[in-house]
């Protein structure tokens, strides 16, 4: 197998793992939420989610019928071979996964409303590239559900409001989203840069495992504060009330223009799917999120 074939194979495996098996940190958070909920409706909803996760694993079915838009995050070692062929390999893997897992075809031409049928199309699957030193290739896939995507939003707040303005915007957005993004959600927040940079950071922040403290003490404090505030809102699982509205708030930032303070909020639903692997120059593979899953 050439290295490009390995990339395709690994990408296919990652998509499959991601849509069937939720990451351990997400499952653990949902279990903890179930134990800590006191309202009947919230407990019922979380129980259903946990049962559904178990059944999906048992029957190897996608954990939610909406298998999302396929997004890749690639960290490419500058010395990794055949970098120009990676994109093709990822597209092929997406097509294969659509047929074999199977995934729901979710890629539609905005002009004709025609569904491509294989989860590919202009810019889709979307690939986020980062170049790093070295000769390995790290692939992360995030199959992103439509219901939570519909609630993502970015705006430029008055810079004078500062971090207070950020807090307000985040809380308002969570209230506005209500039941729609299938709570409990993971909330990603991006600040600064430009509007495009803010939403990019917000979305990427969704990939950070739950309950791993942010190494930046300012962000860590803000995350804690917004997490606690959000869970006092009482929206609850599926918007039926309860103490679990969010499983985590993850924040990242960029420096900003003096006259502009973009803030973005991205949601991932309880079916917060992601899977990662690292491919070495010799073609060996290390699965990072789904060890021990075939």
């Amino acid at each position: 197998m050439g290295i490009v074939d390995v990339v395709e194979e690994v990408a296919f495996n990652l998509i499959r793992q991601a849509v069937i098996y939720l990451p351990e940190d997400v499952k653990a958070s949902l279990k903890k939420a179930y134990e800590e909920e006191t309202s009947e409706a919230a407990k019922t909803q979380l129980r259903a989610i946990l049962d559904n996760i178990e059944l999906a694993e048992k029957y190897r079915y996608p954990v939610c019928q909406d298998t999302g838009t396929i997004l890749f995050y690639i960290t490419a070692g500058a010395e990794f071979k055949d970098l120009d062929k990676i994109e093709r390999a990822l597209i092929n893997a997406t097509r294969r996964a659509t047929e074999e897992v199977p995934l729901r075809p979710n890629s539609v031409d905005p002009f004709t409303q025609k569904n491509s049928g294989d989860n590919t199309g202009r810019f889709i699957p979307y690939i986020n590239w980062e170049i790093a030193p070295g000769n390995t290739l790290e692939i992360t896939v995030m199959p992103k559900g439509g219901g939570s995507e519909n609630m993502c939003i970015a705006k430029a707040i008055p810079p004078g409001e500062g971090i207070k303005g950020v807090k307000k915007f985040v809380i308002e957005t969570i209230v506005e989203a209500g039941a729609q993004p299938c709570p409990p959600t993971i909330v990603g927040v991006g600040m600064g840069g430009g509007v495009d940079i803010a939403i990019k950071l917000a979305k990427k922040a969704l990939l950070r495992p739950l309950n791993t403290p942010n190494p930046d003490p300012n962000l860590s404090k803000l995350e804690r504060e917004l997490y606690e505030a959000a869970n006092k809102l009482g929206i609850g699982p599926m918007g039926l009330g309860g103490r679990t509205t969010v499983l985590g708030v993850h924040i990242d930032y960029a420096f900003r223009h003096p006259a502009s303070f973009p803030v973005a909020v991205a949601f991932n639903c309880w079916a917060a799917r992601r899977a990662s692997a690292k491919i070495y120059a010799d073609g060996s593979v290390e699965y990072l999120t789904h060890r021990g899953v075939e």
């Binding site: 409706a41 307000k168 308002e172």
Partner: peptide, 23 residues
């Protein structure tokens, strides 16, 4: 209507939370 009850309560909670976090 549970959803309407919840959203009413959420609006009330929001006001309290704004106070708590100094908004």
């Amino acid at each position: 209507n549970l959803f309407m009850d919840v959203s009413k309560k959420v609006e009330e909670n929001k006001i309290k939370i704004y106070k708590e976090i100094g908004l």
